[in-house]
Amino acid sequence: MTSYLVKPPIDLGEATVQNYKKSLNLASRLYLRADADDKKTISGMISDCEYAIEWLSTGRRPGNKRGIERRAAYQRERLVDPLKMQAYVQNSKAGSPSNLTEWQRFQIQDALSRLSDRERECYVLAHGECFSFSYIADLLGISRSSVEEYVERAQRKISEDLQSSLFLIS
């Protein structure tokens, strides 16, 4: 590394658009004087600064087509608390705060009882065991898209049941 990169670091303050623009300007000037090895590192720094500037300026992660506020309802809602679903699958009775009461266990059983066997199996493996769709597909000998469809169908049914079942109201 050349000596101009070994200078003490410059504190540019908190993460603001202006400070990232200062960093970008500084990195761009260093890039012009750097040798081939350093140019690769500095270009990575430049792209990181540009990414952060875009994120801070727009308030959205760069590259996303839709912000979280414009997601479809099924993408935003959590039908079952993941910790409760995992506690249900583990069936643990120890003193952990994530363990379920008998009423909570009954509510989950009621929600799962309305699903087909395959939907229940895929939903529990995905949300209770936290397995990926690909792993579940390999485990059950079906395609990944089938697993995704079963889980989506199960979520849709549980969502509909949340509106109508007396047992699922917290």
Rank of each mutant, 00 (worst) to 15 (best):
E129V: 03
I42Y: 05
D161T: 07
L30N: 11
V80I: 15
Y88P: 03
M85H: 01
P62N: 03
T101F: 10
I68F: 10
Y20P: 02
Y74F: 05
I158R: 03
L140K: 00
A36I: 13
K22I: 13
K39L: 11
V124C: 05
T101S: 15
E152M: 06
E149P: 03
L30Q: 14
L56Q: 02
L139P: 02
N91V: 05
I136V: 00
I46K: 08
Q107G: 04
E152Y: 04
G59H: 04
W55G: 01
I158T: 07
L140T: 00
I169M: 12
K157M: 09
P62D: 07
D81K: 00
N19V: 02
G141T: 03
E160F: 06
I46G: 12
R105T: 15
K65G: 02
S92C: 12
S132C: 07
S170H: 11
R61V: 01
S165K: 00
K65E: 13
P97H: 12
N99A: 07
T16C: 14
Q107V: 01
V151P: 02
L30H: 05
I42R: 08
K21F: 06
Q155P: 02
I108L: 15
V6Q: 15
L168K: 07
L30S: 06
F167R: 06
I136S: 04
A34D: 07
Q104G: 03
S23W: 06
P8R: 10
S96M: 09
R61A: 10
K22E: 15
D35R: 12
S164I: 09
E69V: 03
K39C: 08
A72S: 08
Y4M: 13
W55D: 14
R153P: 05
C130L: 04
Y74A: 09
G63S: 10
T2A: 15
E102A: 01
Q107D: 08
E14D: 10
Y20L: 11
D161I: 00
L83P: 00
V6F: 10
D117A: 10
E54V: 02
R118E: 14
E149Q: 05
R66L: 13
E50H: 11
E148C: 05
R153K: 12
Y123R: 04
Q18V: 09
D117Y: 02
S164Y: 08
Q109G: 09
S143M: 06
Q104P: 02
S164R: 14
E77Q: 10
A111G: 07
I136W: 02
A34N: 11
R118P: 04
E160D: 09
S145T: 03
D110C: 01
S57C: 08
R156P: 03
Y74W: 08
Y74N: 11
I53P: 00
I46P: 04
N25Q: 14
Y74S: 05
W55I: 00
K39R: 15
N99L: 01
P97T: 11
I142Y: 02
A72V: 00
T2R: 14
Q18L: 12
T2C: 12
E152F: 03
A34T: 10
L140H: 05
L140E: 02
P8E: 12
N64H: 07
S146Q: 07
W103N: 14
K21L: 14
K7D: 14
L112M: 12
Y150A: 03
V6W: 10
K21N: 11
S98K: 15
L79K: 00
D11E: 13
W103V: 15
D81E: 14
Q163N: 09
Y88E: 07
K21G: 07
Q109E: 15
R114M: 11
